[in-house]
């Protein structure tokens, strides 16, 4: 899926109410099957950019297009549907739900898009087996290591085969071995499945695995 972000702007309010501009007219285009890395200093707005692209919050200005559909201006309900079917998220802090088992966390992705639970479960178990966490399917997040949690979170992100995968520092809390597994999976998604993958990282060696690296600074994106 081709993603196009045009002139995205976002300003937050500071503790004293003062405006804190984060994005100021950021543009980005990612083709189907392309693996793009976004680098930038801490606080440069990398996570905010992913949140906007993933429809997790609304930009103050600008547009986001998936193919020829302007998704940034869709209604709440339709945006929910787009999030569930078209976007997969991998977060640095995993964001698993503590009250659900690993398998239940993975299946959560299928629950809200109306997929048949039985077939989703078969697929989830296959995915978990491939990522080496099938034996942990009945465990709760607190009972898993960081690497296992990230692999579970990855399974959840790709269960619905979304055409767009957004990964926010997915290896930030992992050791090198586990980091390699996740990065290889993300590359595989782009190469083998044709998904658009956007990876936010502050590590140059990680960004080097991408087809293209963009640098975020002063609220804008530039080719690194």
């Amino acid at each position: 899926m081709q993603l196009r972000a045009v002139a995205l702007s976002k300003t937050y309010r500071g503790p004293g109410g003062q405006p804190v501009p984060v994005l100021a007219g950021a543009d980005l285009e990612v083709k189907a099957g392309e693996f793009v890395a976004v680098m930038g200093a801490s606080g440069s707005g990398k996570s905010t950019l992913l949140n906007l692209l993933g429809l997790l919050e609304a930009p103050d200005a600008g547009e986001i297009w998936f193919e020829d559909r302007r998704v940034s201006h869709l209604g709440r309900r339709v945006q929910c549907r787009v999030r569930g079917t078209s976007i997969g998220y991998v977060f640095q802090s995993f964001l698993l739900i503590s009250g659900l088992t690993a398998l239940e966390n993975v299946l959560l992705a299928a629950r809200y898009v109306g997929r048949d639970r039985r077939s989703a479960e078969v697929e989830a178990r296959t995915l978990m087996a491939r990522l080496g966490v099938a034996h942990r399917s009945g465990h709760y997040p607190a009972q898993l290591s960081g690497g296992e949690q990230q692999r579970v979170a990855y399974c959840r992100a790709v269960l619905n085969s979304p055409p767009l995968v957004l990964a926010d520092e997915p290896t930030g809390n992992l050791d090198d071995d586990h980091a390699r597994v996740i990065l290889a999976e993300l590359r595989g998604l782009a190469r083998e499945r044709g998904a658009s993958v956007i990876l936010v990282t502050h590590r140059a060696d990680t960004a080097a695995l991408a087809d293209r690296t963009m640098r975020l600074g002063g609220g804008r994106l530039e080719l690194a």
Binding site: G54, L56, R76, R77, C80, R81, R83, G84, T85, Y89, L95, I97, L108, A109, R111, Y112, V113, R156
Partner: peptide, 11 residues
């Protein structure tokens, strides 16, 4: 998290 995974307000 659930809304990020596509849950609607009603769901």
């Amino acid at each position: 998290i659930k809304r990020a995974l596509g849950a609607t307000d009603l769901q």
